[in-house]
C-alpha cells in the first residue's frame, strides 16, 4: 500500500512529468495560454494516460515477451488506435463529456508524455495496479503543471514585460522557476528517487 502511495506522490510532485522529465512540453507551452483550456486538456491527459497504462500493461504481458523489438512500434499503434476508439465510444455515449474533452484527445494521442508513461512503466516493472496509480499520478502532475503555468501566463500578459522577452523566451523562464519550486519536493520521503 505504501508503495502505491509513494508511486502516486512521486509521479505528481517529486518526479513531475512536465517539470522534471520534460515530457509533454508541446501542450505545456502550446495550450497553456488560458486557464480553462489548460484544465480541460489536463483532464483529457489523465484519461488518455489511464488507457495507455492498461494498453502498455496488456501488451507487455501478452505479446512482447515473444517479440521485444516490436515494443516501440506496438506501443504507438495500440495506444493511438485505442484512444481513437474510446473517443468514438464517448462521442456516441456521452456527447457532453465528448464536448469537454473531445477536441483535445487527438492532440495528445502521441505526445511524449503518453509514450514516456508506457516506457517508464515498463522499464520500472510496474504491475497492473501500480501502473494505474502511476498513470493517474503522472496525469495529475501534468495537469497541475499546466494549470499553474496557465495562471502565471495570464498574469504575465497583464504585466509590463520588455518587448524582447515576450513570447516563448518568457514562458521558458517562468517554467524554469516552476521547475525550481518543484525541486523542493525532492526531499519528500527521504532521498528515494
Amino acid at each position: 500500500m505504501s508503495n502505491l502511495a509513494w508511486i502516486f506522490v512521486s509521479a505528481v510532485l517529486v518526479n513531475n512529468f512536465t517539470l522534471s522529465y520534460f515530457l509533454g512540453l508541446c501542450p505545456f507551452f502550446g495550450v497553456s495560454s488560458r486557464l480553462e483550456t489548460a484544465f480541460r486538456l489536463g483532464l483529457a491527459n489523465i484519461f488518455v494516460m489511464v488507457i495507455t497504462s492498461v494498453c502498455a500493461w496488456s501488451l507487455e504481458t501478452l505479446v512482447l515477451p515473444h517479440a521485444p523489438y516490436l515494443r516501440l512500434i506496438s506501443f504507438i499503434v495500440v495506444i493511438a488506435s485505442t484512444v481513437q476508439f474510446v473517443e468514438m465510444v464517448i462521442k456516441k455515449l456521452s456527447p457532453a463529456l465528448f464536448k469537454a474533452l473531445g477536441i483535445y484527445l487527438p492532440l495528445i494521442t502521441t505526445n511524449c508524455g503518453i509514450l514516456g508513461l508506457a516506457l517508464f512503466q515498463t522499464s520500472r516493472g510496474y504491475g497492473f495496479f501500480e501502473g494505474l496509480v502511476f498513470a493517474v499520478g503522472a496525469g495529475m502532475g501534468m495537469t497541475l503543471a499546466l494549470v499553474l503555468m496557465a495562471g502565471l501566463r495570464e498574469e504575465a500578459e497583464l504585466s509590463d514585460v520588455p518587448k524582447v522577452a515576450r513570447g516563448i523566451a518568457l514562458n521558458l523562464i517562468i517554467a524554469g522557476m516552476l521547475a525550481m519550486a518543484f525541486q523542493g519536493f525532492a526531499g519528500l520521503f527521504g532521498s528515494a528517487a
Binding site: N171, L172, A179, M180
Partner: peptide, 25 residues
C-alpha cells in the same frame, strides 16, 4: 548545480532565445 537540474534546462534555453531575439531585433 542548478544548471544541470531540470530548471537549468528551461533557463538555458530561455536565455539563448532571449539572446537571439535581441540580435534579430
Amino acid at each position: 548545480v542548478i544548471m544541470i537540474l531540470p530548471s537549468g534546462g528551461f533557463f538555458t534555453l530561455g536565455s539563448w532565445l532571449l539572446f537571439f531575439n535581441y540580435l534579430s531585433k
